[in-house]
Simulated scan of single mutants.
Amino acid sequence: MSGLTAAQLARRAGTSGPRLSTYASGAVTPSAALLRRLEKVAGSAPSAPGERTPDGTRS
């Protein structure tokens, strides 16, 4: 869990709150690129070796 509100998650991933809601409801399918950004922002994306993790450490 990232501790972000839906609005914060949307903004940090480069989309809007209402648009994020359409993805969450299943009305629209997000692109693979947006899914990767959402995962990265939320802290659930796997890190590449040497990439900084959400807590600032390196993987």
Rank of each mutant, 00 (worst) to 15 (best):
M1P: 01
S2Y: 04
S2I: 00
S2M: 00
G3Q: 04
G3T: 06
L4M: 00
L4V: 02
T5G: 00
A6H: 09
A6W: 00
A7G: 05
Q8C: 09
Q8M: 07
Q8F: 04
Q8D: 13
L9C: 01
A10D: 03
A10S: 01
R11E: 15
R11F: 08
R12T: 05
A13L: 10
A13S: 15
A13P: 01
T15P: 00
S16Y: 10
S16C: 08
S16L: 11
G17V: 00
P18S: 08
L20T: 11
S21C: 09
S21Q: 02
T22E: 12
A24M: 09
A24G: 02
A24D: 12
S25N: 14
S25F: 08
S25Q: 13
G26L: 10
T29I: 13
T29L: 13
P30C: 02
P30S: 02
A33Y: 05
A33F: 06
L35H: 01
L35F: 07
R36D: 14
R37K: 15
L38F: 05
E39N: 15
E39G: 15
E39P: 04
E39H: 12
E39S: 14
K40D: 15
V41Q: 09
A42Y: 08
G43K: 10
G43D: 00
S44M: 10
S44A: 09
S44W: 10
A45L: 09
P46C: 05
P46F: 11
S47V: 13
S47G: 12
A48G: 13
A48P: 09
P49C: 09
G50A: 10
E51V: 07
T53A: 14
T53Q: 12
T53C: 13
T53L: 15
P54H: 12
P54S: 09
P54F: 14
D55N: 14
D55C: 02
G56L: 06
T57K: 00
T57R: 08
R58V: 15
